[in-house]
Design a protein around this nucleic acid. Structure first.
Lengths: 89, 89
DNA sequence: TTTTTATGTATATTATTTTTGACATTGTGT
DNA sequence: ACACAATGTCAAAAATAATATACATAAAAA
């Protein structure tokens, strides 16, 4: 899968939540602190499950914690469209 | 991380979207059909990125495609609460 | 009947996420 | 100056997601 553009405001939300530490967020979501650091700093995309857990801790819907920038790939899209018009109905 | 309870209605959404096939959803999200099958049947939790991509295809917010059942673990929660009350303020 | 098309399954391999343990830095308190 | 808490980083290992290839079945189409 393509490298991605996922943003998050975990850092902001932690401080708004009585300055919750990375360690406490890690404990409450059941992962290690290193995992929280990596996600907070956008090193990689978490599993959907972990994303849900984190959002739940802050009492926010997932899309208010994480956002994804959809960069449309025109080449790929054309390929798909071609294939679709050939095979459909 | 604990085994999880993530539900999805991809199958329903595919059929509502002019009976989109698993193959087409795979092509449009940039993964293989096997990945779509596995996720549709709850074999494992997708990455957040893939979850966003799938939701985007159906034009739905992520939480309308995937839902997570939070099974509170009272033992873990007590442990966290104890730790919190000792270390905080 | 024969041939596609869509779906599900199995197994092995690759890629990515997560863990573990360790160490550096910065700021705060004693 | 010393301890301590919070954050960041690094590298190796473990766990899990995703790919690749192949095969089976049922249903629709030819």
């Amino acid at each position: 899968m393509a490298k991605c553009l996922i943003n998050n405001n975990i850092r902001t939300l932690r401080f708004m939540a009585n300055e919750m530490t990375q360690q406490e967020l890690a404990d409450r979501t059941g992962v290690t602190r290193q995992t929280i650091v990596a996600i907070e700093n956008g090193k990689y995309s978490p599993t959907l499950e972990l994303a849900f857990r984190i959002s739940h801790i802050f009492g926010k819907p997932l899309n208010e914690v994480f956002s994804f920038q959809y960069d449309e790939d025109p080449v790929l899209n054309k390929k798909i469209e071609d294939k679709r018009s050939k095979t459909k109905d």
